[in-house]
């Protein structure tokens, strides 16, 4: 099966010989977006049916499996912390002084009414580790020339088995992403903007997510400060840290 896929990829890539290699592009994207670890503050604006609301948080991540988030705003959420290790998620709420374990199925639920699931939000998957990629064309997005890259997951556990990225030719970051179901139905679309150069890497500081099957205005995700490859002590990703 893998061989077949490889042959298929090869034959397609030879057909698009004038385009760069998909894997190379993924590698470059990962170099920009992924890191061994990172610390960032973010603001999420959720457009609900009735009101829009903003949630601010600070997140520490290391690798693909560990993530720790502390909520800063609104006041009600302040001090709430989340720890994700592999498939397990714990939430600490300061008002109740409780550490609550969230079962696996909850990871797939929307975060606070947004168009993002906990999985979407807390996972930092290197594309190269899960997807094959083929460049299928070139288009402009927001006035910038982009490669259109089609990604197909070889890892059956990926939530989105198909991705389509519009990758900035010069800066090697996606400016638009589409997430597809296995059968090819478009599920979500995100638009990435406010690209900044941080310590030599390009990073989009604003992402707008939209669930394409559902009516609604989508969710904005805006990154404030971001630090790559900082020294994060191991205790950050421990349950003891939740109560601190």
């Amino acid at each position: 099966m893998k061989l077949l896929l490889a042959i298929l990829c090869l034959s397609i890539s030879s057909a698009y010989a004038q385009y760069p290699d998909g894997k190379e592009i993924l590698k470059k994207i990962d170099q920009n977006l992924s890191s061994d670890n990172r610390i960032f503050t973010s603001k999420m604006i959720i457009h609900g049916r009735r009101t829009s609301r903003t949630i601010e948080s600070k997140t520490w991540t290391a690798g693909e499996k560990k993530s720790f988030t502390e909520y800063l705003f609104p006041a009600r959420e302040q001090g709430t912390k989340m720890l994700k290790l592999d498939d397990q998620l714990w939430i600490y709420s300061p008002s109740t002084d409780r550490t609550i374990q969230i079962a696996g199925h909850m990871l797939r639920q929307s975060v606070m009414g947004s168009d993002l699931s906990y999985e979407d939000l807390m996972e930092d998957n290197r594309l190269l580790n899960h997807y094959n990629a083929v460049v299928t064309g070139a288009e402009n997005v927001a006035g910038r020339p982009c490669w259109v890259v089609k990604l197909t997951a070889f890892d059956p556990n990926m939530a989105y088995q198909g991705l389509k990225l519009w990758v900035d030719k010069e800066r090697n970051i996606p400016l638009k992403e589409e997430m597809y179901a296995k059968s090819g139905t478009l599920l979500k679309r995100s638009e990435l903007s406010n690209v900044e150069n941080i310590n030599g890497r390009w990073y989009p500081k604003k992402i707008v997510f939209k669930d394409m099957l559902k009516d609604g205005e989508g969710t904005e995700f805006i990154i404030g400060n971001i630090q790559f490859n900082a020294a994060i002590p191991e205790y950050v990703f421990s349950k003891a840290n939740l109560k601190k």
Binding site: A159, Q161, K182, S183
Partner: peptide, 16 residues
């Protein structure tokens, strides 16, 4: 109508 589900591995899938 569009039906969306997740297969046994958790991958999203959807179809008409």
């Amino acid at each position: 109508v569009t039906l969306r589900w997740r297969d046994r591995n958790g991958a999203f899938d959807a179809t008409e």
